[in-house]
């Protein structure tokens, strides 16, 4: 059984390593093999992609990308039976713990008891999407992802939502334009708009622009408007029905008067 340890605190990772080593020693048959230690969500996803662990011991409270989002990405990347099983770990989450019980999701309380870890490993369960979504809502972590996970053949790339300039839809795919270039994702503009409505604004039937990079308006020759995007040479066309909303937003943040 390949196990990946994910925790942002060094001593916490180290302790899990000790416990797993001891469990492995006692129960030789189980064949527990720690394939790595990740210190944050991004690292965790890369390890999972490269090492394909069977079980991930996942800390919930981590910087940038929390454990629940990591679980979400793991599920999105794999088919249900290929996704690693997840055991959450947490020090103290106040009311959050009730959410875990309600969703029948296994979690370990730090400091973790060896016996408890052992039983959790013996009956690892696979989470489904509904459970993760419910946890996300209950634990109060923002429903929107902090990163998009992009797969290019065998390679995996994580793009922070903050670094995305705009999404553009064509017939089949959505192109993500970000500071590192462009990538294709298999999601619809509509679901992206719903999830990231705080950070992105619709300017056209086929374009969703990051609010932070939207700096102003231009008049087009045809008498319509186009959006000036920071770091982009060409402005993007704004469709007639979205002009009012874009203007309202720009006024609200004081980028146009």
């Amino acid at each position: 059984m390949k196990v990946l340890i994910v925790d942002d605190e060094g001593p916490a990772r180290q302790r899990l390593q000790f416990l797993l080593d001891e469990i492995a020693e006692v129960s030789e048959g189980a064949g527990i093999d720690v394939v790595g230690q990740a210190a944050n969500g991004r690292e965790a996803l890369h390890y999972c992609h490269d090492m394909a662990p069977d079980v991930v011991l996942l800390d919930i409270r981590m910087p940038d990308m929390d454990g629940i989002e990591v679980a979400m990405h793991l599920l999105a990347q794999n088919n249900l039976d290929q996704a690693p099983a997840v055991i959450f770990t947490t020090a103290f989450g106040e009311h959050a713990l009730a959410a875990f019980d309600a969703q029948a999701v296994d979690y370990l309380l730090k400091p973790i008891r060896k016996e408890r870890l052992q039983t959790a490993l013996e009956r690892v369960t696979h989470l489904n999407r509904a459970q993760i979504v419910a946890l996300q809502q209950n634990v109060g972590s923002t429903a929107a992802r902090s990163h998009l996970c992009i797969r290019l053949g065998d390679r995996m790339e994580l793009v922070a939502i903050n670094n995305i300039v705009y999404f553009e839809a064509d017939q089949k795919y959505v192109t993500v334009w970000h500071d590192g270039g462009e990538s294709l994702i298999d999601e619809t503009l509509k679901t992206l708009e719903q999830e990231f409505s705080e950070q992105f604004i619709r300017i056209h039937r086929n374009a969703l622009v990051a609010r932070q990079y939207l700096v102003g308006l231009d008049k087009t020759k045809e008498g319509g408007f186009s959006a000036v995007i920071e770091g982009l040479a060409e402005p993007l066309e704004i469709s007639r029905r979205n002009v009012a909303a874009v203007k309202k937003y720009l006024k609200q943040v004081g980028r146009i008067s």
């Binding site: 605190e9 916490a12 020090a91 103290f92 973790i112």
Partner: peptide
């Protein structure tokens, strides 16, 4: 509680 349990976990490791 958050601080207490995290500290105990650190001690357990050290």
């Amino acid at each position: 509680p958050h601080f207490l349990f995290n500290s105990l976990n650190t001690i357990a490791s050290l």
